[in-house]
Nucleic acid binder design. Structure first.
Lengths: 226, 226
DNA sequence: TAGATTGTTAATCGATTAACAATC
DNA sequence: TAGATTGTTAATCGATTAACAATC
């Protein structure tokens, strides 16, 4: 999906190599592993100890053979006749994706959306911690969003450095999105998660990911209606 | 990404056929077309009249050659040396995706997230209209979310029929997600958009799409950190 | 015209899956 | 043991991209 990113060179021929040396995963594999991880995280919450490739397939919409193939490229994680141990597989996938570590987030915008994000566990479950919330509205400064107190925008630059923030989340009205993106970039953030549908102009070294629920829905609908 | 869906049979050999007869698009093409549409919609808002494949590539992270290839399978939509007309291309892609029509949504949950969704234009821009909002909390019933008045859950079944609702959006706490899904399914909704990370058990004929911002972020981060 | 950008080809590369042996 | 499910192969299929002619 993102051909501007480098690809690994030796491919299907030696998939194990991707796990051992630092070779990049293909985009498809990385995307699928992320989805497996999400389902496994939920399965763990439901106190499931083991899971089979066909159960995983049911929730990820990925073919069970491909799931086994994706996983077996990195090691023999399952038990024949039994399935995969949930905890163990979570650890393995986290290691493969290098996301066993913690990453710190700054959230910009303390309106309905910002508060919904700050109060949810979607990010926390995957090793992201919302360290700070900002808003330009003086009335919102000092109120609580999730577990943190909303700060004024002026604090952004200092907080990014002090708290080792790597990701900035934009949860403001679309009209303000570009201005906030500029502030985040100015403060040194290099990964932006954009919850508005506004196209953002940023320097080349900054990665923007835009959330597109309506696009996702369109895509789902296509297969429903066809 | 979803091998349980049928695929079209004759593929790259006669791409034009996919536009003319009712043949299914491949999943990759449908996903990419949806993203082009999103960027085009935003470009239109910014009063852009034409756009080149390389500009489209910049915002979608899809290779410009592939964009031209995807589009040329359905017709000659561009002008050499000039680019694509934004309005015209939007119409064409909508026609290809069969999403020129309007679809009605019922939103369940009028908390921060529900209000954020109801008040935003992300769905409206793509032909979705939020016809009704529901909540189990009696205190929220009667208040406004976006442009609609919050109804009690008891009204769900009747509203789904009366308003021709095809999509149900779940924006309640994760703990209540399964119960709401059951209610939506009972009311006849066959497409569910799940904003919680809870795995939902639904009948086979119901399509569930789960929003996973943290997974998206993990995926983006992988390429940043690698 | 000169420059730009599309449309298209041809070759490669990676993803997908059915099938089944291995083994828990 | 019998049943279940993984790990792996081999074949196919579709996606990707460089390159360039066509043409606005």
């Amino acid at each position: 999906m993102n051909p501007s990113q480098p690809k690994k060179k030796t491919a299907a021929s030696s998939p194990i190599a991707a796990g051992l040396d630092g070779e990049r995963l293909s985009l498809g594999v990385a995307a699928r592993l992320s989805r497996y991880l999400q389902v496994l995280t939920q399965a763990k919450k439901m106190d499931k100890e083991k899971i089979s490739s066909s159960e995983l397939a049911r929730f990820t919409h990925v073919n069970p053979t491909q799931i086994r193939r994706d996983l077996s490229g990195f090691g023999k994680f399952g038990k024949r006749g039994v399935g995969y141990n949930v905890d163990f597989l979570i650890d393995q996938i986290r290691a493969i994706l290098h996301t066993a570590a913690k990453y710190n987030i700054a959230l910009f915008g303390a309106g309905h959306l910002g508060k919904a994000i700050a109060g949810s566990e979607v990010f926390a479950d995957h090793g992201f911690e919302i360290k700070a919330v900002f808003d330009n509205d003086a009335k919102k400064v000092g109120t609580k969003a999730g577990n943190v107190v909303v700060q004024p925008a002026e604090e952004l630059r200092k907080t990014v450095i002090d708290e080792d923030i790597v990701v900035g989340v934009i949860a403001v009205p679309a009209a303000n999105a570009q201005a906030v993106a500029d502030e985040l970039v100015g403060a040194g953030v290099t990964i932006i998660f954009n919850y508005t549908d506004r196209l953002l102009d940023v320097p080349q070294e900054v990665t923007v990911h835009t959330s597109s629920p309506a696009v996702d829905l369109l895509y789902a609908l296509y297969f429903y209606l066809a």
